[in-house]
Design a protein around this nucleic acid. Structure first.
Length: 831
RNA sequence: GCCGGGGUGGCGGAAUCGGCAGACGCGACGGACUUAAAAUCCGUUGGAGGCUCAAACCCUCCGUGCGGGUUCGAGUCCCGCCCUCGGCACCA
């Protein structure tokens, strides 16, 4: 994933690039044509905030950071194709954001609407649903407020079903990321039911996933924002009641969505004095306004079934409403009976306590009594549908993507507001609508820059005003991977023919924090572009790998806050006041002062050490602690490799032919280890198990060290030369600098990245002799060494094993013998 | 509450399809080199017990969060729990 140029990189950032680089180098050596580009997600709020602080322009801050990061990439030895670099803050790039916006607008995928939006007071802008984490702003952590505003949206909900269904196609995505998206989209199947309104022709429409409980409805509850609320208020003749109802609604609305959203908030309601009519049985049902009903989901109104819903139960108890059981949970579903589990589970269970939210058999439900929940779901749905009283429906939690931002440093939305013609798109020929090149004026946005927003209407040529919102920066990153294919094309966003050839991305590497935001938006964009005929694939990223974060100890003083580790002396005392520090492991971050600078590591140990340690420290998908001891361990290993190879490199010229047929037993062992290592390193890289790939190379190094030191006079030079060459090749995607140098010293002239990745000889994997474990009753009691030819011979293995352990068995009766060829013989005996 | 990941030495972690638990690395301890230290190199390193004057070697038992089960054999499979991390959460 391409980064936001937020400033100085630390070793935790390095993990993403190092993993990607090792994999790209490996694939390149395997002979693939590898496109490994990099760019910068260069618009965004931090640039504005930094600019305000430093009295500069966001552009200067951004460009300086980009240059710093590119230097860092070079230090790390990351191989990118810089000819394809893209920066989203350049008009050459964001022009196409605007172009896509216009295409979306034409297709109804971009629209402007009134909505209750998430407003971040810290960032002074609205946010998308996905950018609100636990009720707080994803960027600045301020509590998010709700405001009713007119904003631009992308209609991502039009793709809810596809985004959900196509998750199945993503075989090579981590399960947890798919699950997160699955939950986020949040599909539920149910029935919409139109309840009648007493004294009105209107209907009160509710959504329920439990139509089987419709005979248990004893109240209705509507959200305070529900349109009927105003109507009820207006129609209320009793002025005191009207005032009370109004006050209740006001109070709940002011609780704020976040406070109201918490499941722990006590349920409150207000009886409107009005009644609904249950269409299934004509019953008269009181209508309440309730704080726990959300306007954004379903229809903003629910049917209350206290006996079979915990929330409704709580509400009914508080307001003394009838709790009418309509599902008998003591009757096991037919399925259980069919599976024969009826008896084994003890027949009819004791009736579960109310509220009972499970399935069961319907009771007190008119003509539907006796059906199972599952049957009733369908039958009641059909019953209502046939009479025009309701219909089957699917609902999603996914909301449309709010893309308007009231900020300067982003892509201007290419729309013009004309008093006569309304909202008019900027003609495509006039793109890009450039950000005004003015001295940066601070936390104000485009609405403060008349020279930007004063314009003329493209239709009537009269005076008009540009839209002053900019786009969410996630728009920029939703299609950048397509731009890499033809980054300099100024006639179109990308070359569709080439894009269809290169994409989807074969391997994508990024942090799990993008599981919902970026990865969902990019999937939406890809599907929208596919429907526009611009690409011919459904999903942008075929394989996804999400690396874990790197953590480091952080020290916190109750008085002086975060203390840099280098300042901490005398155990864990604060250097300023001597108080005991709180020590904990956290993700590296500037604010906690627990980052490690790659430059410091590189200055002391070299980039290869950082790369190797990053890959070796643990499974790359896991969060893991950075330790100085670990870094030194990797450094020591590289020194051992360096010394091993160099102490022999000069003697390894003119080594002659390698003849594996004439190997001694010792040489065969080396040969076998070499080929086993090639095999496991190759397989480990394919599976992103870099930690075990490195340990395999360490084992090979240990074996080679032993071999050359055992009998220095008798080493097989051709074998050692071959082993060293391969050792260096295997290590080179991880530690390219040292390997390049060793490669030359081994007498080669071409760059190591141009070499072919080693392949193993299956013949060489097996030793001439194999050790077979002998077990008695499953416990290892002895072992034997047999020639490879007979290690697969069951009868012979059994014969030899029994002969060898005869004395241990003697009196005991042999019940049976289990032979696993090539592995073990297990003798089962009875006393 | 729902969904998902995970619990293995002092630490990070290995362990194909159910087949020698603890690879590799860190740390620790002992030794070599050194006036000394660092660096480097060699050795030991899950626990308990036995054998032994002592050690090596060897042997026995226990041991992968807890309790059951399947199996000749379980870190791995099944059932029931506990803990932990992450996501969602009054979503009808």
């Amino acid at each position: 994933m391409f980064p936001y140029p937020s400033g100085v990189l630390h070793v935790g950032h390095g993990r993403n690039y190092i993993i990607g680089d090792a994999f790209a180098r490996y694939k390149k050596m395997q002979g693939f044509t590898v496109l490994n580009p990099m760019g910068f997600d260069a618009f965004g709020l931090p640039a504005e905030n930094a600019a305000i602080e430093n009295q500069t322009h966001p552009r200067e801050w951004t460009i300086a950071n980009i240059e710093g990061m590119k230097r860092q990439f070079r230090e790390w030895g990351i191989v990118y194709d810089w000819d394809r670099e893209i920066r989203t803050c350049e008009p050459e790039y964001y022009k196409w954001n605007q172009w896509f916006f216009l295409q979306f607008y034409k297709r109804g995928l971009a629209y402007r609407a009134d909505a209750i939006a998430n407003w971040c007071p810290g960032c002074q802008t609205v946010l998308a649903n996905e950018q609100v984490i636990d009720g707080r702003c994803e960027r600045c952590d301020s509590p998010v407020e709700k405001r009713k505003l007119t904003q631009w949206f992308f209609k991502i909900t039009a793709y809810a079903e596809q985004l959900l269904k196509d998750l199945e196609k993503l075989e090579h995505w981590p399960e947890r990321v798919k699950k997160m998206q699955y939950n986020w989209i949040g599909r539920s199947e149910g029935v919409e039911i139109n309840f009648g309104l007493e004294g009105s022709q209107k209907k009160l429409r509710v959504f329920t996933t439990r139509p089987d409980t419709v005979f248990g409805v004893t109240f209705m509850a509507i959200a305070p924002e529900h349109p009927l609320v105003e109507e009820f208020l207006a129609a209320e003749k009793d002025s005191q009641k009207r005032a009370e109802m109004g006050a209740f609604v006001q109070r709940v609305l002011q609780q704020g969505e976040i406070a109201r959203g918490a499941a722990t908030v006590e349920k409150e309601g207000f009886f409107t004095g009005r009644y609904a009519i249950n269409p299934i049985n004509g019953e008269k049902i009181p209508i309440y306004i309730a704080n726990y009903v959300l306007m954004e989901y379903g229809t903003g109104a629910i049917m209350g079934v206290p006996a079979h819903d915990a929330r409704d139960f709580e509400f009914a108890q508080k307001y003394g409403l009838e709790i009418r059981q309509v599902i008998d949970g003591s009757v096991l579903p037919q399925a259980l009976r069919d599976e024969g589990r009826w008896e084994s589970e003890g027949g009819p269970a004791a009736p579960p306590p109310l509220p009972y939210e499970g399935e069961g058999r319907l009771i007190n439900s008119g003509e539907f009594t006796g059906l199972t929940s599952e049957e009733a779901f369908r039958k009641i749905g059909e019953f209502l549908e046939a009479r025009g009283l309701g219909c089957f429906a699917v609902k999603y939690k996914l909301r449309d993507w709010l893309i308007s931002r009231q900020r300067y440093w982003g892509t201007p939305i290419p729309m013009i507001h004309c008093e006569r013609c309304g909202i008019v798109p900027v003609p495509e020929s006039e793109l890009p609508v450039k950000l005004p090149d003015v001295p940066f004026i601070g936390k104000k946005g485009l609405a403060e820059i008349p020279q930007f927003y004063r314009t003329t209407c493209p239709q009537c040529k009269g005076p008009a005003k540009r839209d002053t919102d900019t786009m969410d920066t996630f728009v920029d990153s939703s299609w950048y991977f397509l731009r890499f294919i033809s980054p300099h094309d100024d006639t179109r966003p990308f070359d569709p023919e080439a894009v269809n050839r290169w994409l989807p991305v074969d391997q994508y590497v990024g942090g799990v924090e993008h599981a919902i935001l970026h990865l969902l938006y990019s999937r939406f964009f890809t599907k929208a572009l596919r429907d526009m005929g611009l690409v011919n694939f459904d999903e942008p990223f075929a394989r996804l790998f999400t690396q874990g974060v790197i953590e480091h100890l952080a020290y916190r003083c109750p008085k002086h806050n975060w203390i840099h580790p280098s300042e901490v002396r005398e155990g864990t005392k604060c250097p300023h006041c001597g108080q005991e520090l709180k020590v904990d492991l956290y993700k590296m971050s500037k604010s906690k002062r627990n980052t490690i600078s790659p430059q410091d590591v590189i200055d002391q140990y070299g980039a290869d050490t950082e790369r190797l340690y990053t890959l070796f420290m643990g499974p790359p998908e896991k969060d893991i602690e950075w330790t100085d001891e670990g870094v030194r361990g990797s450094f020591r290993f590289l020194n051992r490799v360096w010394n091993l190879v160099l102490s022999h490199a000069r003697k390894l010229t003119d080594v002659g032919e390698l003849n594996s047929m004439q190997f001694t037993a010792r040489e065969k062992k080396v040969w076998q280890k070499l080929h086993q290592t090639i095999k496991s390193v190759t397989e480990d890289i394919e599976g992103f198990h870099f930690n075990t790939a490195v340990s395999a190379i360490m084992e090979l190094t240990n074996e080679l060290t032993d071999y050359v030191t055992e009998r220095p006079k008798q080493i097989n030079k051709a074998l050692v030369k071959c082993a060293f060459d391969n050792l260096v090749l295997l290590l080179s995607p991880f530690t390219p600098f040292i390997c390049e140098e060793l490669w030359r010293r081994l007498g080669h002239e071409d760059a190591i990245l141009e070499q072919r990745w080693p392949t193993y000889d299956p013949q060489a994997l097996h030793a001439a002799e194999r050790e077979i474990v002998i077990q008695i009753n499953g416990k290892v009691r002895d072992r034997m060494v047999v020639p490879a030819e007979i290690s697969e011979d069951r009868a012979e293995l059994e014969r030899r094993a029994l002969a060898q352990i005869q004395s241990r068995v003697n009196e005991k009766k042999i019940v049976k013998v289990i032979v696993v060829p090539g592995r073990l013989v297990n003798v089962v005996v009875k006393e």
